[in-house]
Amino acid sequence: MPEFLDDFLFTYQTLIYALGVNGLLALSMYVVLALGQLSLGQAAFMGLGAYVSALLTVKLGLPFPLVLLAAMLAPALAALCVGAPTLRLSGVYLALATIGLGEVQRIFFINSELTGGALGLSGIPTKGGLISIYGSLALALIAFAFVARSKIGRAMEAMREDELAAGALGVDLPAYKLGALVVSAMLAGLAGALNAHVSSFISPNDYGFDAAVTILSFALLGGIGSPFGPVLGAFILTLLPEVLRPLADYKTVVNGSIIVLAVIFMPRGLLAWRMGRAGAATGRPK
């Protein structure tokens, strides 16, 4: 690797990792918003993935791929437990239940000895890195883009636009909602595990309500017309504080103002482009 690139990576390593991890989190938010649901449990799912993976690595020394798999399955199970009873109802119940999940989990992490209490877990060995983070992001992005242009993508958009009409066309509403929440939890768990293994330290308060709202703002700022919007939103909101660093104390004010202005003047997000929904060329047959 050329020396200047090496220096660059070393200097901005944390930021480069954060961009990829936040991109994954934005996609985990996207898959739920794309069918018109609101989950505020992304941070909790991320935290669960982070803790499960860290414990498996530190205490049991399991191989990294296996650790990542477990970090996806544990949040998936949590999503099933929260989603199955609440997704039969419409409205804000999922949002409320997932806030609850996040708080319960945070209090548990603070009080359990296994998870290191309020001090969190430190000394997590470094594993993965650029390739596993950006590889996961690229794979997830491609998968979502393909699914968006299929029967499933059409059903999801139909649900977001008009759930009643989607149901009348035979879309199994509870199955779709639960499926989306589980996929979302798996992605957030993966992001949590990847992040834990590049930052060596995790603590309960990294995965609180603030984090959940930040993840939501990634998707809303970027726009949910395509999976690319949320990733763009995550990149911008991760970079913005760094770019605004010279403003010192005024940094958060300007950061917040930019978000507010973007939401007011670009309600469909920065990337308002809506991805087509057909999986083949839509021209008239010859």
Partner: peptide, 30 residues
């Protein structure tokens, strides 16, 4: 009750939901 953002063509494809045999795996792998 329209799916406002969809094109006419996409709307009709959505109408075929129940009869369209497309698995998640087949969609992912094209």
């Amino acid at each position: 009750r329209m799916f406002n953002d969809m094109s006419v063509l996409e709307t009709l494809m959505t109408g075929m939901h129940a009869n369209l045999a497309e698995s998640l795996l087949a969609s992912l792998l094209r």
